[in-house]
Write a protein that binds this DNA or RNA. Structure first.
Length: 517
DNA sequence: GGGCGGTGCCC
DNA sequence: CTTGTGA
DNA sequence: TCACAAGGGGCACCGCCC
């Protein structure tokens, strides 16, 4: 199969908004692919090379300037091999070597192929189909049911390999893919709840309400004395978190798969800023024999909230209630008690509210409300788990706006936000946001902002600091980028405030008051 | 050896 | 990570 | 309801350059 076949399919997928048409086009290509081509083709058309992110981003690719070929010649296999080499290139002189490989890749590609490769390698396929629709396509092409593909994907953690299995052996082969301790599964996610009351109303009384911590998701596997740890995206971090490995080794079991969250605590047991937790991710190993505590004293504490396997028994199909019972049994001892995620089963509305208050008083992020009857549905952001976090709002000044990309091309989209200077100077920039904007609001911004223009740069329009916008946010974090030393976290537009002036906007002190940790 | 841009991945 | 959009 | 696209801040890592 040629790369150009994949590019043609991608174009067809991108040309329609109808999901059925997209999956049909994808499925047709999968049927035409050879057994060894399925893995790279599925990976590419779900938006990521088989090798993962390869270390060449938009900046490197923008520097590649070779004329396109007239006729397509790359095969899928050849490109996959070249990507392998690209991914394996490191050390001194690697930048030059990469440039050579990219020149070769692009120089033998047609213009259409160059554009496809560019989108693939920057991680912005933008064909309106990623893993979700590929699951449907694999089901269609293989004749296996969607549920079977979904389940195998969740348990194997990898769609390309799942697709190869499905196309080779159909539903029967998929049924052979089970949970394997030592191989991470896709984690179950929570959807955003509107409020605690709304979540309780939606899920009923057969629920548990647990603390939601501002840390990083971890999945911990144990077989005998071997322990491995993965993140939410199934990146292995075992070597970076020896303290989690040691705590898991002390559990009274021989095999387990645990799901949880980890974060850094201060000496009082209160959560540190998320940034401190994050400083421990991305470090491969620490190797200084101090059990993980680095020179800044950041130690990670794990909190487990689910159990997917215990001593030979798979639990993903069991109701949460059963999994929680077994988890409680595993973490029964005094020594293990600190590893339990705090929570209350079947709370009254008042008790549920008290759990939320307790979480916030303890400095945590909020709560998650979970249906006790639900099995572990990995990889789907269903309604069985709903997260509830308090929302803060601020009135901020619009300092500028950036021209959008993709479906926002031609619109002034991402806005720069400033807080009032308590000393009376110009507003101080504290962040940007592109969220919360309807098409109507984008049109309004695009029409209105030029009337406030003060200065223009490529891609950015700077405004006189007059427009006030009400912003929702989760909190603030310390910043070295912004002059006030603080930045907004998860800022989104609620509405513009034509009734307010920059003098009415919230001050930098109001932003600083939202700092956590 | 330190600064810096580019990249990937946490949220 | 959050939100708006469209099938 | 689901999947996707729009893009945010910060941190560690890496290679390159001074």
């Amino acid at each position: 199969m040629l790369l150009s076949d994949v590019v043609t399919t991608s174009a067809a997928v991108g040309a329609t908004r109808a999901r059925r048409e997209k999956t049909t086009a994808l499925a047709d290509l999968l049927r035409a692919a050879g057994p060894t081509e399925i893995v790279p083709v599925v990976a590419w058309l779900s938006g990521t090379p088989r090798q993962g992110r390869i270390g060449t981003g938009w900046r490197t690719l923008a520097a590649v300037d070779v004329p396109p070929a007239d006729t397509p010649s790359w095969t899928v296999q050849q490109v996959d091999e070249l990507l392998d080499e690209l991914a394996g290139t490191s050390g001194q002189g690697s930048a030059r070597r990469r440039r050579e490989l990219l020149d070769r890749l692009y120089g033998t590609a047609t213009a259409d192929e160059q554009r496809f490769l560019h989108r693939l390698l920057t991680g912005e396929l933008r064909q309106g189909a990623l893993e979700g629709l590929m699951v449907d396509a694999v089901a269609a092409a293989s004749g296996a049911g969607q549920a079977a593909v979904r389940r195998a994907f969740m348990l194997s953690g990898r769609l390309p390999e799942t697709a190869a299995t499905a196309l080779a052996g159909g539903a029967e082969a998929l049924a052979g893919i089970g949970l394997r301790v030592g191989r991470p599964i896709r984690p179950m996610l929570a959807s955003p709840g509107d409020s605690l009351d709304a979540a309780l109303a939606a899920l009923g009384t057969e629920v548990t309400v647990e603390h939601k911590l501002d840390g990083a998701r971890i999945q911990v596997h144990r077989t005998g004395d071997e322990i491995r740890v993965w993140t939410r995206t199934l990146r292995e971090i075992t070597a970076a978190v020896p303290e989690i490995v040691e705590l898991t080794r002390a559990l009274p079991c021989s095999a387990a798969v645990l799901d949880g969250e980890t974060l850094a605590l201060d000496d009082d047991g209160r959560p540190r800023a998320f940034q401190d937790t994050m400083s421990r991710f991305g470090t491969e190993a620490d190797g200084d024999g101090d059990g993980g505590r680095d020179e800044r004293g950041v130690l990670l504490s794990p909190f487990f909230f689910d159990l997917l396997h215990l001593d030979g028994h798979d639990l993903v199909d069991e109701p949460l209630e059963t999994r929680l019972d077994l988890l409680a049994g595993l973490l029964e001892g005094d020594r293990q008690a600190p590893l339990r995620m705090p929570g209350v089963r079947r709370p009254s509305p008042e008790e549920a509210a008290a759990v939320l208050d307790g979480a916030l008083d303890a400095g945590q992020e909020g709560v998650v409300v979970k249906d006790l009857a639900a099995p572990y549905a990995a990889g789907r952001r269903g309604k069985a788990w709903q997260k509830v976090k308090p929302v803060h709002t601020l009135d901020l000044v619009v300092l500028g706006a950036e021209w959008g990309y993709g479906r926002r091309t031609g619109s002034l989209s991402n806005i720069h936000l400033g807080a009032r200077d308590p000393d009376g100077g110009e507003p101080v920039m504290v962040g940007k946001t592109f969220k919360g904007m309807t098409d109507e609001l984008l049109a309004w911004q695009t029409e209105t902002f030029p009337r406030y223009a003060r200065e223009e740069e490529p891609g950015v329009l700077f405004l006189r600091p007059e427009l006030v916008v009400e912003i929702a946010l989760d909190g603030a974090q310390r910043s070295t980028r912004y002059p006030g030393g603080v930045a907004l976290r998860f800022a989104r537009v609620l509405r513009y405030r034509p009734d307010r002036t920059a003098a009415d906007a919230d001050s930098l002190d109001a932003v600083r008051a939202l700092l956590s940790g």
